[in-house]
Structures are given as C-alpha cells and as structure tokens.
C-alpha cells in the first residue's frame, strides 16, 4: 500500500541495497528487514538509547530516523562494533566491572560509550555520565557502567 523507496548505504563496512517503506524507522529496518537484532527497541521515542547506532560517525537514536534517510550514509551497529578490535578494551571493561545485568541496555550503552571515547579520549567520570544521559539502564544503577567506560578510557592508553 504505502510508498517504497530504494536506498543504498554502508552497514558495518558492507554496501547494502534495500527497498523500504518511506515511513519505516531505521530501527525496524535493522531488526526486521536486515535481521540485525543487536540494536534494541526500548521506547521507540528517543528516551532510552537502546536503539543507538552510529551514523556518519555520530550516534543517533535509530528509532527516530527514517530508514530512507540512511541512503548514502555510513552506519555502524553493535554487530559492527563487536567485530572492531578497537572496541575490545571497552567490551572487556564491561565484563570486568559487572556493567551488564539483564543486558538489554548494553548494545546502546556500548555504542554510546565508544562514541564518547572516540570524541573525547580524556573523558572523566563526569563527561562519561553526561555522554550517557540518553541511555537508560533499569538494572545496574549506572555506577558500574561509568566505571567500566572510565577504565576503558584510561586503561586503553
């Protein structure tokens, strides 16, 4: 019924060509069309950060993006980050600090944490907290997450 549009973009380093409904959001596209389910649906309205992905080097809530707007862009999801050796220190830090409980927020947290460390390698606990403001966690109470990111930041150097 509704209008479809062809798009082409880079997803985790690989060129993708898809036809999507013009009103579809990027989160539904990743999960339901591409089948990458590491990116989570929490709220669908920009409040929780579970759907965080990297678009042209900046993190965005994929639930707020129109999938057609991905045309020509470079997208990295948690699956792409997991394959990046540069993210090993961050993943190890999350494990070591017990920063994962149910794990639902974790992909978004790790995407955003990687972005914080990329853009501000000297981030202190305060900068990390500010950077993670858009990511909700119902389990950990955040402290372990902030500790993990902080140790990945300074431990990585």
């Amino acid at each position: 019924m509704s209008l479809k549009h062809d798009i082409e973009f880079t997803l985790n380093g690989v060129t993708k060509r898809l036809t999507v409904d013009v009103t579809m959001n990027a989160l539904d596209m990743l999960r339901d069309v591409v089948g990458l389910t590491g990116t989570k649906y929490g709220c669908g309205e920009g409040e929780c950060g579970a759907c965080t992905v990297r678009v042209d080097g900046e993190t965005r809530n994929s639930c707020l993006m129109f999938a057609v707007d991905l045309d020509g862009r470079d997208i990295v999801t948690i699956e792409g980050l997991a394959a990046d050796p540069k993210a090993d220190a961050l993943r190890d830090a999350f494990v070591e600090h017990g920063a994962v409980q149910c794990g639902f927020c974790t992909p978004g947290m790790v995407m955003q944490a990687a972005h914080i460390l990329d853009t501000n390698p000297d981030a202190d606990a305060n900068a990390i907290k500010r950077g993670l403001e858009g990511n909700l966690c119902r389990c950990t109470g955040y402290k372990k997450i902030v500790d993990a990111v902080e140790s990945a930041c300074c431990g990585g150097r």
Partner: peptide, 9 residues
C-alpha cells in the same frame, strides 16, 4: 537540550 544522540540529530 535532550541527550547526545538527539543533539546529533
């Protein structure tokens, strides 16, 4: 304003 992800968009 909002959060980093929203400010980026």
């Amino acid at each position: 304003f909002a959060s980093d992800q929203i400010r980026n968009a």
